[in-house]
Design a protein around this nucleic acid. Structure first.
Lengths: 204, 204
DNA sequence: ATTAAGTCGACCGGGGTGGTCTAAAATTAA
DNA sequence: TTAATTTTAGACCACCCCGGTCGACTTAAT
């Protein structure tokens, strides 16, 4: 394929422009004109590299699934049997991956929710990825750490929701910030404090 | 104003069509053509009732703020000093309000996030509403119920995030369901079980 | 010098936009 | 009944943007 042999910089420009446009507007409302302008290429090239708009979209999804698998899921340590510790470690890995591919991750957030927008040929890979994610996060957990007067499954979910809530708030608080110059240490410190509260509350 | 004197059914049709369209597409991408078609009126009427698209949008926001204030916030009992109990009660009230105005609430979820889209003249009312919301949910809480080995502020937030997470999941699980014929009892039962877990974990 | 690969953006037909305006229908007044 | 008035529907306007094509041009390889 022509596209994958492109100069690295140009390839990334196109990918990121497309990620941003599709993430912001969705498949149908996204404009190939905006993408080429943002990517700094001529209109013709986009349709030289990709069959059409749909082809570009499918390539982006496939690429995204690969990156999420390789740069995120596979780097989580499933040997850590402490649920909260595993989450803590996963949050670090996730943040690293996000900083490496911010546009890609924003894009992933949009199409993962809306199964309709995923072409059939990629659905199996989608499901495989989700199953993998569940395994990596929830398998081989040491149940004995939890207090025994509550349903562990429910505790699981509550902890997950609480952490996701914190992360969403963080996303909003840091919206528009310059990640390159930002010192994350205080945020990780705060995060760990919240994890401590969870540990005190849900563990025995 | 012509609009408020309309037949109740027609008025509601127009409002709901507009709520849905703006909620789905945002202000700029929303189409007045779709709204009039959905509402079952001619194009001319919309611009007879409202000055223009912007005027309609602002009316919707104002209307929404009124409803949220009257049918939601003001019905929460701020006398309940048990944080989780207050949340439990608020969830019921919120669900009732949502069932009465589903399109309106979906609309509210979109414009509340994006302060940019709110016209200046309505910003004070927006802020007033948010302040009111905070007061009603977080003021006059009995701190002594919480276990004393954790920061109460952090526990507050974790509980809120966890409950919001549950509610989001519920929203997804029930997406597309017919609320009219749906029996909510098992869901409330499950919800209360989660609240019990939270109580056991965060209270002393 | 010749071929081939790469690049651009003007251009196409189609379709949707917010908003206006006319003419008919419905309602009210006489 | 007729005349005056208010509501209504949607054809129409000028404009903008769409995905995709195509021929003109540049660059690199042989």
């Amino acid at each position: 394929m022509k596209f994958i042999n492109l100069d690295d910089n140009k390839r990334r420009n196109i990918l990121n422009a497309a990620f941003r446009e599709f993430a912001e507007k969705g498949f149908e409302q996204a404009s190939t004109n905006v993408i080429v302008k943002e990517a700094g290429i001529g209109k013709g090239m986009l349709f030289y590299y990709f069959k059409n708009k749909q082809g570009l979209y499918e390539y982006l999804i496939e690429y995204t699934l690969d990156v999420i698998m390789e740069d995120y899921l596979q780097r989580i340590d499933p040997g850590e049997r402490d649920f909260i510790e595993r989450f803590k470690h996963a949050a670090r890995v996730k943040m690293k991956a996000f900083l490496d591919h911010p546009d890609l991750f924003r894009f992933s957030g949009t199409f993962m929710l809306d199964q309709e927008s995923i072409p059939d040929r990629l659905k199996p890979r989608m499901e495989q990825l989700q199953e993998m994610g569940n395994k990596i996060m929830y398998e081989n957990i040491d149940y004995s750490l939890f207090r025994d007067d509550v349903d562990v499954e429910k505790a699981f979910r509550l902890i997950r929701w609480a952490i996701e809530g914190y992360q969403n708030e963080m996303k909003q608080r840091l919206y528009g910030a310059n990640f390159a110059t930002l010192d994350f240490d205080p945020y990780w410190k705060e995060f760990d404090e919240y994890l401590d509260v969870l540990r005190k509350s849900f563990y025995s």
